[in-house]
């Protein structure tokens, strides 16, 4: 019953066992210290290498390390809270046979409250500072930075540019340094800085090269740039990560990172093989507006004022000009430009 009951006949049997504050503090702290001392090394030595998305690029490696740091910051918090709740449930419950009493009327504690706010603020600021450092350090950490990226790799002369085109429901890729051929295959050279220019022909897609740690939304008429430096050869998965209609779930394929010479061989031979097709493609541009060629489904009438202006300004093949901050080196890309970019181990 509540507080209005007459004072308990047995003042001793509940209260003393519950004791004062300090023994509880000491016990809780000891358990927490032990738990943290076990969990943190396990995370660092055993879990770290297995954290997705792996180490295929510097962006992936950065995300992996960041996830480790967050986990190592979060673990002591999780341990403390869980431990506290279990402890409270075990030690501070109404025991059978005890007279039903109320607990001590503790309304608050300035020190505890201030300490709590201080500690949580420090953790949060730590996570923010580290996350921002990682974001800048890996040139946007593989995320799409829009048409004018502000975090770019230091050297951009030797960069390979790949345009990623999302359309319902498949990805195609254009290689502007190789005559602008377009193919559904994504092949990349190792030890090379890559700039992905992601755009869409219709709705919003999201280019997710999982093992590369690259993700960028594909918006129509938008050039969304993401960077990554390749680090290992092998296969990676590309999935669409933004709901885009019926075949969204099937909109995936595989890409490969190969040696720079293999890549060069593939790229030059494909350029030659696809040259008749490349001729009928629109001239390479950073975005690509198919409505201008009449393939708009007739939703907006052909007399649509904006469409007319658009056609006048940009022609029918898409937007010319509007070059992003990271330019394509006009002379193409050679294997000799690769090989110097070994992603440093941490």
């Amino acid at each position: 019953m509540s507080h209005v009951e007459p004072p308990s006949e047995h003042p001793g049997d509940g209260r003393v066992a519950r004791g004062a504050n300090m023994p509880h503090f000491a016990r809780l702290f000891a358990i927490w210290l032990l738990g943290t001392a076990i969990v943190e090394p396990v995370l660092y030595f055993l879990v770290w290498p297995h954290i997705p998305p792996g180490t295929m690029t510097d962006a992936a490696r950065g995300a992996q390390f960041d996830a480790l740091v967050l986990t190592m910051m979060a673990s002591p918090v999780v341990i403390a809270v869980l431990e506290y709740f279990v402890y409270a449930m075990v030690v501070w419950h109404q025991k059978k046979g005890e007279p039903p009493e109320d607990g001590p009327p503790i309304w608050g504690h300035v020190g505890i409250q201030a300490g709590w706010i201080g500690i949580t603020s420090a953790i949060v600021m730590g996570a923010f500072v580290f996350g921002t450092y990682e974001l800048i350090n890996t040139a946007g950490s593989g995320g799409g930075e829009g048409p004018s990226p502000i975090w770019t790799p230091a050297e951009t002369n030797d960069m390979l540019t790949v345009q990623v085109i999302g359309q319902q429901w498949l990805w195609t890729y254009r290689y502007p340094q190789f005559g602008g051929f377009e193919t559904p295959e994504l092949i990349l050279p190792n030890h090379t800085k890559i700039a992905f220019h992601v755009t869409s022909l219709d709705v919003i897609h999201d280019f997710w090269a999982y093992q590369l740690g690259v993700k960028a939304d594909a918006n129509p008429n938008v050039d969304n740039v993401a960077f990554a430096t390749t680090n290992e050869t092998g296969r990676f998965t590309v999935r669409c990560d933004e709901l885009c209609g019926i075949w969204h779930g099937a909109m995936y394929n595989y890409g490969y990172i190969v040696s720079p010479t293999t890549f060069y061989k593939w790229a030059t031979s494909t350029e030659k093989k696809l040259s008749p097709l490349t001729k009928i493609l629109p001239k390479f541009a950073w975005t690509y507006n198919p409505s201008a060629n009449g393939a708009g489904g007739g939703y907006y009438p052909a007399s649509d004022a904006f469409y007319q202006v658009y056609k006048y300004e940009y022609g029918t093949s898409g937007k010319e000009g509007n070059l992003p901050a990271v330019h394509v080196k006009p002379s193409g890309w050679k294997p000799s430009q690769a090989g110097s970019h070994h992603v440093r181990e941490r």
């Binding site: 009493e101 607990g103 706010i117």
Partner: peptide, 30 residues
Amino acid sequence: FMLTTELISIPTGFIYLIGMGTLWRARIRF
């Protein structure tokens, strides 16, 4: 936006503060 999002976990954490403080030396009825 990273900062504001992480800041929001501070007031959210207050819910744990009031919960854990209330449990301190309580008479929990399950």
